[in-house]
Nucleic acid binder design. Structure first.
Lengths: 294, 294
DNA sequence: CAAATAGTGTCTATAAGACAGTATTTG
DNA sequence: CAAATACTGTCTTATAGACACTATTTG
C-alpha cells in the first residue's frame, strides 16, 4: 500500500492566514491545487523526515530556516478511493512558519504558492467566522484574501506577490464575503486542511506556538495579531497584553523596543522573544465559542 | 510499503488502568507482548474500520458492544527499522472501553489479555505517579499492579481475575516500588502506549470521555475513580462532585440511586448517565503538574 | 451506635473580562 | 497639537481549592 506525507504549512502574510499549495500537473485533479507532499522513501527516512523534506522542497528553505518552523504530525487519512489511482494512506503534517520568502516550484516543476485560507472551499468547515474587524481599520482582513483559481492558474508558478496586500481585482469594497468562487482542493485535502486549522486554533491556546509565526523578536501587538488571524475574532488589546506577560515562560523581554510606533502614532512597542515554556499555564482560552460543541 | 493499524485499548479493572495486549507467536519479538493490530486491507476498508475490526477480533465484542467504545486515531509511526522484517507504517488508535468480558485470543490463536499499565516498561515515560492513596500509607504501588510476565505467560490467554485486588504474590509490604520486572513490549509499542496514555490524560480534561470507561449509568464517585486512575492522583471528593455537576452537559441525572451505599457505610449515591456535551466547558484541569513542561 | 461516606455550604485566592486612564509617538 | 496607540490600573464576575458540615447508610 502506498504511503505518502502531505504538509499543511501555515503562515501569516499581510495579517491573513495562508497555506502552502502546489498545482497538480499530473492526472487526477490536474490543474487543481493540492497540499505539497509525496511518497515516503520506505525504509530510508522517518515520517517526520519525509515531511520536512517535502516542506523544504516546496519552500526552498535551507536547514537553518527550517529550524524556525514548527512541524508536527496531524493525522493519517486512508479512506478507500481517496486516490482514484490506487490505495494510498497519507500521513498529514502541520507546519507553522514565519513569513517566508515566496514559495518556489517543487523539484518536479509544479507551481507552488501561499494561498489565503479564506479563499479555500473547505466544505463549510471554516468555523472561525471572518473577523469582525476590531478597529475601524481592518486588522486582519485580507485585502488580498481571494485569489481566483484562474488568476493563480496553471503555469504561472511563482508570481511574486500574488498574495500580498494588493487587492486582487474583485474587492467590491463591501466586506460581505459572498461565497465567491472558493478554491476547491484535490483529493481529500480540504478535510485535511480543515483538520489542520482546527488543530492550529486549539494548539495556540495551550502552547506558545503562536510565536512560530513571527520573527525571532516580536511585539505583543504582533502576537495578538497571530491569535486574531487564526481564531478569526478580535481580542481585547489591554487584557491580552497583561495576560501574555503574566503567563510564565511565554515570552521574555529583549529590553529593546520596536523601531517605530504604531502606523498612525503611539509609543514604540517593546520587543520580546519566545520564552522557555512548552505549555501555557494558565492557557489563553478562545473567546466564547458559546458552548459550541454541544 | 506495508500499512498496519495497532490499537491501544484502555479499560479500568478493579480500579487500575489496563491495556489490551496480545502475545506474539511469530518471529520478531516472539513471546513478547504487543498491541493488537494487523494489516489494513488496502482499498477495502478505511483506517478507522480496520482499527475497529482489529479491536473486535481481539476482544470478541459484537457491534452493539463496540458502540459503547470510544475509538480515535492516535498517530502514525514509521521509523525505518521499527520492524526488522520490512518497512512498516502503523496507524495507532486509542480506545476507551468500559470493563469488558475477558479478552479472548484473536482469530490467529494468539493469547490476549488485559494487562495493568503499571506493569509495563514504558521507558520511563510514565509521568503520572501512581496515585498516592489518600490515606497516609504508601504512595506508589497498588496491590494488584504487577503481574509478572511469566504469570501472564504464553498459552494462558484468559485467566480470570489476574488484575483483581489480589496481592500478586510479591508484596514485600514495603512500598519501595523497586522497578521490579516491568513488562517490555514488542517493536516501538512502548512509545505508542506512552503516547496513548498522554493523550488519554489530556483528553479527559476537556471532553466527557471519562464516561466511556463506565457502564451506561454511573455515580459521581465512580467517575472520580476514572480520573484518579488515569491521572494517577487523588482528587478532592467534594470539589470534584460539585464541579462535575456544574459543567453543562457533562452528566445528567437518571433520578435513580445506586443499589447500596459505600463499602463501609454512607448514603446511596445518585446515578447519572453521560450528557450531550462533546467538550467540557469549563474543563476539568489536572491538579498542578507544577508547570511541568518548562 | 460508631464509622464511613455522598453531597452541600462557605470562604479565599486566582483568573478573565470590561472599562478607564496615562504616557508616548506620528503626521 | 490632535489622534492613535502601547501599556497599566481597577473593578466585577467566574472558577478552583481548602475546609467544614449535614445526612444517610453499613456493620
Amino acid at each position: 500500500m502506498a504511503v505518502t506525507v502531505d504538509v499543511v504549512a501555515l503562515t501569516l502574510r499581510a495579517g491573513a492566514l495562508h497555506v502552502l499549495l502546489v498545482e497538480r500537473g499530473g492526472h487526477p485533479f490536474q490543474g487543481a491545487w493540492a497540499l505539497p507532499g509525496g511518497f515516503v522513501q520506505a525504509g530510508r527516512e522517518s515520517l517526520d523526515a519525509a515531511a520536512a523534506r517535502e516542506l523544504a522542497e516546496e519552500t526552498g528553505l535551507d536547514a537553518t530556516q527550517l529550524e524556525r518552523v514548527h512541524l508536527e504530525q496531524l493525522g493519517s487519512y486512508g479512506d478507500p478511493g481517496r486516490d482514484p489511482r490506487m490505495p494510498v494512506v497519507t500521513v498529514a503534517y502541520l507546519a507553522f512558519a514565519p513569513d517566508l520568502p515566496e514559495a518556489r516550484g517543487g523539484g518536479d516543476a509544479s507551481a507552488a504558492a501561499w494561498v489565503p485560507v479564506a479563499a479555500l472551499d473547505l466544505g463549510g468547515r471554516t468555523e472561525a467566522r471572518e473577523p469582525e474587524r476590531v478597529t475601524p481599520r481592518t486588522s486582519v482582513e485580507p485585502d488580498a484574501a481571494r485569489p481566483r483559481p484562474s488568476e493563480q492558474g496553471p503555469g504561472r508558478g511563482i508570481d511574486g506577490g500574488d498574495s500580498a496586500p494588493r487587492p486582487v481585482g474583485d474587492a467590491t469594497a463591501e466586506d460581505g464575503p459572498g461565497p465567491q468562487a472558493l478554491l476547491p482542493l484535490a483529493f481529500d485535502h480540504a478535510a485535511i486542511v480543515a483538520d489542520g486549522l482546527d488543530r492550529a486554533r486549539a494548539k495556540i491556546e495551550y502552547t506558545p506556538l503562536a510565536t512560530a509565526f513571527l520573527a525571532e523578536e516580536f511585539t505583543v501587538v504582533e502576537l495578538r495579531g497571530v491569535y486574531e488571524s487564526i481564531w478569526g475574532s478580535p481580542l481585547h488589546a489591554g487584557n491580552f497584553h497583561r495576560k501574555v506577560l503574566s503567563v510564565p515562560g511565554f515570552v521574555e523581554s529583549t529590553g529593546a523596543t520596536a523601531a517605530r510606533g504604531g502606523a498612525r502614532g503611539g509609543p514604540r512597542a517593546r520587543l520580546y522573544r519566545a520564552g522557555d515554556a512548552r505549555l501555557l499555564h494558565p492557557a489563553l482560552l478562545r473567546p466564547d465559542r458559546e458552548e459550541s460543541v454541544r
